[in-house]
Every structure is written in C-alpha cells, then in structure tokens.
Design a protein around this nucleic acid. Sequence first.
DNA 1: CCAAAAGTGTTGAATTTACACCCATGA
DNA 2: TCATGGGTGTAAATTCAACACTTTTGG
Lengths: 230, 230
Amino acid sequence: MQTDAADGVTIAVSTVIFALRSDGDGRAASLRLPLVRRIRGPFDGSWALPGGPIEARESLAAAAARNLRETTALEPNYLEQLYAFGDVDRSAGERVVSVVYWALVRSEEADLATEGENVRWFAADELPELAFDHNLIVEYALWRLRTKMEYSRIAHAFLGETFTLAELRQVHEAVLRRPLDPANFRRQIEASRAIIATEQHLTGGRHRPPRLYRYNSSVELTDNGPLGRS
Amino acid sequence: MQTDAADGVTIAVSTVIFALRSDGDGRAASLRLPLVRRIRGPFDGSWALPGGPIEARESLAAAAARNLRETTALEPNYLEQLYAFGDVDRSAGERVVSVVYWALVRSEEADLATEGENVRWFAADELPELAFDHNLIVEYALWRLRTKMEYSRIAHAFLGETFTLAELRQVHEAVLRRPLDPANFRRQIEASRAIIATEQHLTGGRHRPPRLYRYNSSVELTDNGPLGRS
DNA sequence: CCAAAAGTGTTGAATTTACACCCATGA
DNA sequence: TCATGGGTGTAAATTCAACACTTTTGG
C-alpha cells in the first residue's frame, strides 16, 4: 500500500473527497465522502480514506487526483493539499508519512460515482471508526472546508456550469449548517463579482423562475498566495 | 542530505525560521531568516533553507525543531507546518518530497544565534537566488505569516515574557509593512483578551513610561481547528 | 386570486477608521 | 517647560443583519 523506504520511512498520499448529495426524503443536502474498505492489515476490514503510494514520475497533486479517479471514477473540481501527517505511531509498526489532499466534486457527478462492496459513501458527520488517524484527518478537512467557505468562492466547485442563487446559497447552508438570509447572501455574492448573470431562467419550478448565473472565472476560487492554484 | 527510498522517492524536512531584528541604524525592525550554504551538489555553494532527513523515531515537527536547533541553536517559539512540496523536477535528478515548517523565534534570542561561514541571516525581502524551489517556499511562508498576523495572536511569539503595546504594535507593523494607528491597535488587542496588564512599567525611556503586558496563555495563539497546536 | 420563492429597499446596530486631545516623563 | 510617546474620547464612515415589501410564476 505504501512506498517502502530504505530506512523504514514510507510516503503515501490520501484524499478526502467531498460531495453534496440530497437525502432522498428531506430537502437539505448533506456532505458526503467516499471511503474504501481495507483488504489487508493493519485495520483489515476497516473503512479508510482512499490513498496509496505515489509514483516516481507524478506530483503529489497528480497522485491525489489519480487515486480519486481510481476509487470513484470522478474528476476533482477543486483539489488542495490539506496536511502532511507524520507522527511516529500513526500506523502500527511501520513509519508512514501521509500527504493528504482534499477535493470537491460536483453533486451530479457524485451521483454517478461507483459504489460497491469496497467503496461506499458516508455522511461526513456520521462516520464509523476509521483506520489509522483517519477520523482526525476528516475532522480537519471538514474544519478547513467550513473555514474556507466563509472567505472563498469555493462553493462553486460543488455546482455545475450554471446555477441559481438559491442553489449556491443552499451549498453554503449545507456546509455551514446554518440558514442564511437570501437577501443579504445575494448582495454579498454580487459584491464579490464572482458570478455573472446569464439571460436564462430556470423554468419548471412552482414559483417565479430564478435567473441562472455562471461563475466568473477571472476571480480565483481561493487565494493561496504565491502557490496560486495547486 | 535526504532519506533514500527504494523507488527513488525521498523525504526531507526544511524549516523557514523568522526573527525580527532591528537594523543597526534605522528604527524599523525587519524580518530576517537564516540560510545555510550548501556544501555539495546540486546547487553546491548556493544558499538554502536549513533542512535534512527525518529520523526513524521522530515526528515531522520534531525533525523541524531539531534542524532549527542544529543550525541556529535556538528554540522555536512557534512552529507550524507550511506545506509539502513534491513536484517531480524540484530537485534536479532525484525525487524529493520536502515537508516544510515555519518557525518564529524571539528577537533577543536571534541576536545570540550562531552565524558563521555556512550560516547567515538574510533580510526576508532581499534574498539571493536560492537552491531548488526555496525562493518560492520563502515567499509562501511570508504570505502565510502576513495573512495569519491579521487574525491570530501570532505576533506574541516574536516577543519576550513581558512587552509594551508599542513593541507589540511594532511587530505587526514590521511584518505587515504598514503603520497602524496606536489608539485603534490598543483597543483591538484589548478586545481580543490576549494580553494581561502587569503593574510594572518600562522606565528609562525618554517619555511617559509605558505599561508592561503579559501574554494571556488561556487564549490560543492560533486556531488550527482539530489539529490544535502541532 | 393565492401561495411561495425571487428579488429590491430600508433601517438600526455593530464595527472600523480617523483624529482630537489629555497625561506623564526625561531632559 | 517642552517635546514626545502613552493613553482616552468621540464622531463619521462603512459594513452587517434583520426584515418589510414588491414581483412573478404555477396552480
């Protein structure tokens, strides 16, 4: 599973993949993430984050994107490094440094994602006991997502090409777990210049058809300083 | 210099160490950091961030603290992981993943720091061309320091046990490179509850003796979410 | 016409910013 | 007493939050 090093320190990449999926009955969407079942020790049979060794000729981010594809057949809409976990005893016996990434994928795409005996999607706030220190890792990823949602345009990564303001607001509400004032939300987003109004409206709803918007790609999703997008 | 891995991917730790030192003549303190001269290829003779391989039984943070001690004989007052750099071609020929930490040390301690032929302190904004991608790494560390200075209590890590509000403000000003209103600065800091007034005053100055403050250790320097202090 | 979401307007509160002004000390 | 940084007061400007109100559709 990991890359063996001469002196016993091995390196691996893991990925926390978030999608927003509507629960069948209720209206509120919830954060979900795919886990894989381990088929060897340690923690044989436990659920764990998708991950694996890096290949000699791929960057860390490429390794994360690859193991995202391999476990869910999805392309990431947003991908960012989370943290490198390297405590001595985090992997019983062997010494593993895990560089962890977190990713956001579109809701519609997540619906198409493969799910099988060894890959299953879980609600982010109802996880079982995971292998290694993966519960802590997911907690940290959730914290980062929520923190970043407040000052970035990251929510767009959950949505498709066009979307209504209500959809964008529901993404914020689902992630932050609190209702937002539609009027004030509209003004905040408009002030950020992150969206562009299209002339299309979404028809078929029961009420006044909302305008569709497009993401303004001249505005960065996040400000990562000199690292830019990575 | 690095830990060789079986498949050619090696892992190392580097550290960006910041101190605030008063320039001899002018009043304004400036951000400085120690670099080491490489004594082997690649980049033989170039300046680089202090770093090296991790030992089998030490955590990443411990490795960073150790190589800080080894190059400067200083103890970090603040230590945080910055990023893991792992692009394929960042180290000509061999494949190295560097987990980089950044540290803050007290100004007085930095004055005692060793400096020799192969260790020298540079002004953070006047660096020469460094080995590998270390210029980018320092840029990112600077960005992180400045960003974090605006919403954290991190500035205290540059100061000693007690300090005046003017000293604390000068730390902010030096890092952010802009003057701050003394009156408003005082109120912001007081509102944060991060300082505790002592009954002592700093005498010997040319004017009204300012009160000395102590850091309120019940307030976290930074909010790193579930990771707490690492 | 009615219900409900889309979208606009308005007001008061809270926060930020600028700057006037008094205080206390060394020289 | 004067110059200067320490420290307090205050009012204008800006941002934030709550909510009333108007618009537009499907039924």
